[in-house]
């Protein structure tokens, strides 16, 4: 499955280097002093996000068979292949349209925190509804790994979920897991590491079948956004949010906060490149 997704890094090191946005992460309250990469854990309520979190970090955040268990943000860390990962467990949400506080927390973190990898935990037995959130995450960031959790329940219900097909359709790695019994976790960590270090470059599925009126509006708006914020990874998503009248995004455009995302990433990417060159010489 991974073979299809692994592309050699582009000639420019920027395409592959780990570049998290330190300033914004610190603003969001994440201490990145001792970490190389930051991983966000998103997903619908009650898909086992906290179980995945505990299994990866060895922490024991209370889990419950209970939608809405994690309201705030839990943080932990793990080391994989000598790289130090900080992992942030976001509140479980059905969407990222920021209609409630938990959705806003999750959305803001994925957008402004620019995690190196966003893991979307989806319930294999309720794939259709869970994909609603996954597709919205893919609109914002392309560094995504899908954790296809609760495979044991899917098997019990006689469902056959074709993870390779799903990976091909979504354009990002998909790892089937049973977090409760740690099944598939080594593969999940490998996939996270591959995306974080740029060994896997994702080509995420993007929604495209809009109505003529929306298509027309996007055609005018997207170039303007790209002109003001060059290098923004999700201009189409921003345009849609602006058309929808999303206050938080309007504010981010007005204050130029959106521009910080691209500039911060670029600056840090360059710095990282310099460091690597120095180390090599």
């Amino acid at each position: 499955m991974k073979q299809e997704l692994i592309h050699q890094p582009a000639a420019s090191a920027c395409a592959s280097c780990p570049a998290h946005n330190l300033a914004n992460l610190q603003k969001l309250g994440v201490d990145m002093a001792n970490w190389d990469y930051v991983v966000a854990l998103a997903g619908n309520p009650n898909t086992g996000k906290s179980t995945v979190f505990n299994a990866i970090t060895g922490l024991r955040q209370h889990t419950g068979n209970w939608p809405g268990k994690t309201v705030g943000r839990a943080e932990g860390g793990f080391v994989y292949a000598d790289r130090r990962y900080k992992i942030v467990d976001l509140p479980g949400t059905y969407s990222l349209l920021a209609t409630s506080l938990d959705e806003e927390i999750a959305r803001d973190f994925i957008l402004f925190g620019q995690p190196d990898v966003t893991v979307v935990v989806v319930d294999a037995t309720r794939l259709e509804r869970n994909l609603n959130l996954a597709l919205q995450v893919l609109e914002i960031t392309d560094r995504v790994v899908i954790c296809l959790n609760l495979m044991d329940e899917a098997r019990r219900h006689g469902l056959i979920v074709d993870d390779r097909r799903l990976a091909r359709d979504l354009g990002v790695p998909v790892v089937p897991t049973v977090a409760r019994s740690r099944e598939g976790l080594p593969e999940l960590l490998q996939a996270i590491d591959d995306v974080a270090t740029g060994r896997t470059v994702c080509k995420p599925y993007r929604l495209r079948n809009e109505s003529p009126a929306i298509k027309h509006a996007l055609k005018i708006l997207i170039p303007q956004i790209e002109q003001v914020f060059p290098g923004l990874p999700n201009a189409r998503w921003v345009a849609l949010r602006l058309l929808d009248g999303d206050e938080r995004i309007i504010e981010a455009v007005r204050t130029g906060e959106l521009g910080d995302l691209t500039r911060g990433a670029e600056a840090e990417a360059e710095q990282d490149l310099v460091l690597r060159l120095e180390a090599a010489s």
């Binding site: 509804r129 597709l135 074709d162 097909r165 799903l166 979504l170 929604l207 079948n209």
Partner: peptide
């Protein structure tokens, strides 16, 4: 989109 992708995979 979610329905279409899910129906292909499941």
């Amino acid at each position: 989109n979610a329905a279409r992708i899910a129906s292909r995979a499941v």
